[in-house]
């Protein structure tokens, strides 16, 4: 049975619940398990890249909207110093987003070489 990020069963995410003011943002957010299942579906169909993206996405469910916007901003060219990017990498790793952290680690090496850090 599909659950929202909050754990609320999908069957309880209803118009009536919306009208009653019961639904919080996390009640209409996807659950990381759902994303991992979809990653398996993609992998089974042979698309390992889409699967990897969905696995990173599952990790990012642990982050708030503002965190997502902040980290995205830091990865844009010339926005962050190498140290700041390293801090982002460590933060991701600490929050269990190991594959996202690995992506940032790659970015750090690439940005250093191509002069894309601040």
């Amino acid at each position: 049975m599909t659950r929202a990020f909050s754990g609320r069963p999908l069957a309880d995410v209803t118009v009536e619940a919306a009208v009653a003011g019961e639904l919080r943002a996390d009640d209409v957010r996807i659950h990381p398990d759902t994303l991992r299942e979809q990653a398996e579906v993609a992998a089974a169909a042979g698309d390992e890249r889409l699967a990897a993206n969905l696995r990173r996405a599952a990790e990012l469910t642990a982050l708030g909207d503002d965190d997502l916007l902040r980290i995205y901003g830091a990865l844009r060219p010339g926005r962050a110093t190498e140290e700041e990017l390293a801090a982002v990498r460590d933060e991701l790793a600490e929050r269990g987003a190991t594959q996202c952290a690995a992506l940032v680690e790659e970015a750090i090496a690439s940005y250093r070489r191509r002069g894309l850090t601040r």
Partner: peptide, 16 residues
Amino acid sequence: TPFSKAFLASAYASRG
């Protein structure tokens, strides 16, 4: 950069 776009792609998927 390709890295910021890859992160953005995962960010979108993380919200379904």
